[in-house]
Amino acid sequence: MDHSLFSKPRDLFLDIVNPRDYVQIDSVSHMYQNLKASVQKPLKMILLYGKPGTGKSMLLHKLHHDLSKHQKVFMIDIPIIDEGDFLRVLAQKIYGYVNREAITLTDFLELSTAVNYPQSPIVLLDEAQLYSALLMEKIRLISDARALKFVITLHKTEDEDIIAKEHFQTRIWESIELQNASCEELKIYIQKKLLKANCFDVANMFNEKNIKLISKLTKGNYRETNKLLFSLFSLYTWYEKNTPSKIKYNALKPKYIEMAGIQTGLLRD
């Protein structure tokens, strides 16, 4: 256990998705409200998409956390790729139907009419780009039958625009795109995260220039920002232990930010 001023902020920026660490950022909160409203509409399937590290999983976990207080919600954060397995797990988790063998779609739909929920149960699927087209089609049928309501997240990669794929072009999809943070939003993200953990002194070290540099290096991507800051505070922890006289507590040293950038591969040396 080290008691460095920087070890706590360092660990804050581990790349972990926990709804309790959710930080309110205006644009994201706005989307989140839309998302919550959409969930209550019948029929539509909801698609959360965006580049890696834009907070899709975070939003999904947050939704799970909030909805499960009032409603039946089930999240599959690691995709179940086998179709039979997928339906079997859903049948068990939602309708309490335990079966060792895989079940068919017809069985599943029958089950769903037998069990009555006041509101249709919600299923959250993270990393949906990993499901086969065939399974996606079944998911759509289940949604059409109003048996379940689905919210799914999808990676949007640079070279392939998944949204263009036919599955997601049908009108049943309501899609919400998540984006990288602006410089201002990134500042709020960092500050709120630090303040939530009572790291006031460290929060105070970030000035406008520092934020601009960080934003430039990470392009406002939350995951890249986490990586960069984790590395930055690791450096600070080292300097504090070995050459404390080098540390200035009134602002972050651009040099250290750049070093962290080099270490995380955001900057080429």
């Binding site: 790349d15 999983s57 690691i78 990393e127 086969s132 990676h155 392939e160 984790f230």
Partner: peptide
């Protein structure tokens, strides 16, 4: 991050790029 969409992987590890062992 660039893993091609729709190619079912056995076990996705979306957090592969974490800088440190967690």
């Amino acid at each position: 991050e660039t893993s091609v969409a729709w190619k079912p992987k056995a076990l996705p590890s979306p957090k592969e790029n974490i800088p440190v062992p967690l």
